[in-house]
Simulated scan of single mutants.
Amino acid sequence: MTRKRRIALAGILFALPSILGLLTFTILPMLSSLLLSFTDYRIVNTPKFIGFDNYTRLFDGTDQYFYNSLAVTFKYVILRVPLGLMFSFIVAFLLNMEFIRGKSIFRTIFYLPVIVPAVASSMIWIWLFSPDLGLFNSFLEALNLPTLNWLYSEETVVPSIVLMSLWGMGSTIIIFLAGLQGVPRSLYEAAIVDGAGAMRKFLHITIPMMTPIIFFNLIMGSIGAFQVFTEALIMTQGGPNNASLFYNYYIYREAFLFGEMGHASAIAWILFIIILIVTAIFFRTSKSWVFYESEV
């Protein structure tokens, strides 16, 4: 065996665990769910091929919760993604300022919620959102402002969960912070020589140089927002009156509470297609606003 082949074989052997894991735990389950989406499968019964009936049942309105879950999920995505990006960018920008003392402490504080178990953080926020004993309503009462029902109102449940999600933006903040620290100082120095103020430097140097990072966080944030699940499972169970019936919780309910695995598989593949389309749109439009330094 030649040295070149030995190196190739060694590379394959090192990559084999990851390849097998991808095939076993990702590719094969995806293919299985695709096949099940064309069947009537209720776990205890043998799958029965029914063609596109599961998909027809969704789009013709037979399943009354499908369009509701789509609307709730898109509402969450529309609120969560822009607010999450703006909040993370502002915090990262402030943490990157030279006059800020104790940066490492603040970075730890903002990242800490990421490593807190989702169940534990959800229980904390349930107390914070409590209409009677919650900290938020106590604060509003102290300011003589009207209190809210937060998780217990159809109008405020989704915004409340969006507010909770901002608490866990530590990873996005760290990514933005790394990008800000990678902006060449020479650009700022040249701008100062030209007489540019802080706002012009921010708009014409910081933002353009950060667009690849903004684009990455936009993609990852959107994909994550479409898959929101834990908050609905622990905090609201889809209520009140299905006002927080997020798409992923809808899949979980159909599959594991109602036992309709075939129907749930069809719902899951529609979500996959939606995320694929949204991601493709972002990539298609990115050419007009994402700036790469290597393209200069």
Score class of each variant (00 low, 15 high):
R6F: 08
I7S: 10
G11D: 05
F14T: 11
I19S: 06
L20F: 11
I27W: 01
L36N: 03
I43K: 11
P47F: 04
F52Q: 05
R57E: 06
L58M: 14
L58T: 00
G61S: 09
T62S: 13
F66Q: 03
F66P: 00
Y67F: 15
T73D: 07
F74C: 05
F74L: 15
V77A: 00
L83A: 14
L85V: 10
L85G: 07
S88G: 06
F89R: 02
N96R: 07
I100S: 02
I100Y: 06
Y111W: 02
L112P: 05
V119E: 09
S121D: 05
M123E: 14
W125Y: 13
D132T: 13
G134W: 00
F136I: 14
P146W: 08
L148Y: 13
N149H: 12
L151H: 07
Y152I: 08
G168C: 06
I173K: 01
F176G: 00
L180T: 09
Q181D: 10
G182D: 14
G182V: 08
K201R: 15
P212K: 06
I213T: 15
L218H: 07
I219W: 04
S222C: 08
G224F: 03
A225K: 03
A225T: 02
F226W: 03
E231R: 03
L233W: 10
I234E: 05
N241S: 14
S244T: 10
L245F: 11
I251T: 05
Y252K: 00
I270V: 15
I270F: 05
L271Q: 11
F272R: 01
I281C: 01
F283E: 06
R284V: 09
W289M: 13
Y292M: 12
E293W: 12
